[in-house]
Amino acid sequence: MSQDKDSKTLPLLDTQGLTAEDIIRAGIRAAGGEVSMASSFSVEDVVVIDMLHKIAPQVRVFAIDTGRLNEETYQVAESVRARYDLRIDWYFPERQTVENLEREKGLFSFRESLDNRHECCRIRKVEPLGRALDGLSGWVVGLRRQQSVTRAQLSPLEIDEAHGGIVKISPLADWSEEQVWAYAEKHALPIHRLHRMGYPSIGCAPCTRAVEAGEDLRAGRWWWENPEHKECGLHR
């Protein structure tokens, strides 16, 4: 990490008592350059987009179209775009790599092994994310600690070593599910229809199902895998 990046460590240490909006402002200051938000159009992401629209409209929004998204994801994305007059920068996986994967391993290789699933996520998500983050000083996400065991140590502001030492801003890190929905309902935000159908976490269509009562919030993601494996590589 360069000296410039090292100097960003200090303001990231203490977020105690800061609101989500305060965390966004602090993260943008710490980044000291261009910041964008990654959105899958979950309720958490739309909450953050609403905040950004009010306090930091210069922050642009990007999304990754894996080629396997639910129709409802496109619908809520369009609702968000229209409501905020928002330009959404869409990124797609490399065509040749996807064609080779499907030609050689079929359409559902990700269910055959953890390695195959990681390969699919790397092709469809991780590689496009790398292009989306190229040249940025920071990125904003809608992650929360309560979502899964893999996110239990999430910091609201941190240096993202996996993506070149840029600043990663998670303004809802400390929020509960109840807080998220209270904000969304208070501000009448566009809501992904699958959330109302028992999908608290939404990714690619063949890798996402509704959860049963009492299940973990991300139990419907890659439900054939152990909980500690349920990340796609976007958030390492």
Rank of each mutant, 00 (worst) to 15 (best):
P93C: 14
G220M: 10
D134Y: 07
S176Q: 06
G198Y: 08
E177S: 12
V48G: 05
S201I: 08
W224S: 09
T19A: 13
K230P: 00
A82I: 01
R122L: 09
G135R: 05
F108T: 14
R196C: 10
S201N: 07
L189C: 02
G106A: 06
E99Q: 12
C207M: 09
D85W: 08
V149E: 12
K5V: 14
A30P: 01
E212K: 15
F41R: 09
G67A: 03
E44Q: 12
N100P: 02
E104A: 07
S109G: 09
L189W: 02
G198S: 08
K168Y: 10
I55Y: 13
L13N: 14
A63D: 03
G198N: 06
Q58V: 15
W175Y: 01
M197Y: 09
E71R: 12
E44G: 03
L101S: 06
Q96R: 12
E231L: 06
V80Y: 08
G138S: 04
S42L: 03
E185I: 04
P11M: 08
R131D: 02
H53I: 01
L12M: 13
F110D: 08
E99V: 10
E158C: 11
V76D: 00
I49S: 04
K230S: 00
A184N: 05
L12N: 07
V43N: 00
R122I: 03
A26K: 14
Q153I: 10
Y74T: 06
L143K: 04
G33Q: 08
L172C: 10
G142H: 09
R81Q: 10
V149W: 06
G33T: 02
Y199G: 01
G142K: 05
R87L: 15
S137G: 11
S40T: 07
V59P: 06
D89Q: 08
N100W: 12
R131N: 11
F108I: 11
P227I: 01
L136K: 07
R196K: 14
N226E: 15
R25E: 15
E94S: 13
L194D: 03
G130S: 06
L194C: 02
E161R: 10
P156N: 09
D14A: 11
L18P: 00
R25D: 13
H195D: 05
S2L: 05
Q146C: 10
K5F: 07
G164S: 09
H118L: 11
R196P: 04
R193C: 04
L18R: 05
L13S: 15
C207E: 07
F62T: 00
S36C: 11
E21G: 02
E127N: 15
R111L: 14
A26L: 15
G142I: 04
L194W: 01
R209I: 09
V43E: 00
R81P: 04
L154Q: 00
T19Y: 11
N116P: 06
T208Q: 05
V35R: 02
K230G: 00
S79Y: 11
L52C: 06
L86D: 00
L129R: 07
N70L: 14
R196D: 11
V76M: 01
G32V: 02
S170E: 10
L10T: 13
V149Y: 04
R117L: 06
E72H: 13
A205H: 09
I169L: 00
R117H: 11
I28E: 03
L133C: 00
L136N: 00
E102M: 11
R81E: 12
H53S: 10
H192I: 09
S170K: 08
L107H: 12
G106Q: 02
S109A: 15
Q3I: 15
A184E: 05
V180D: 05
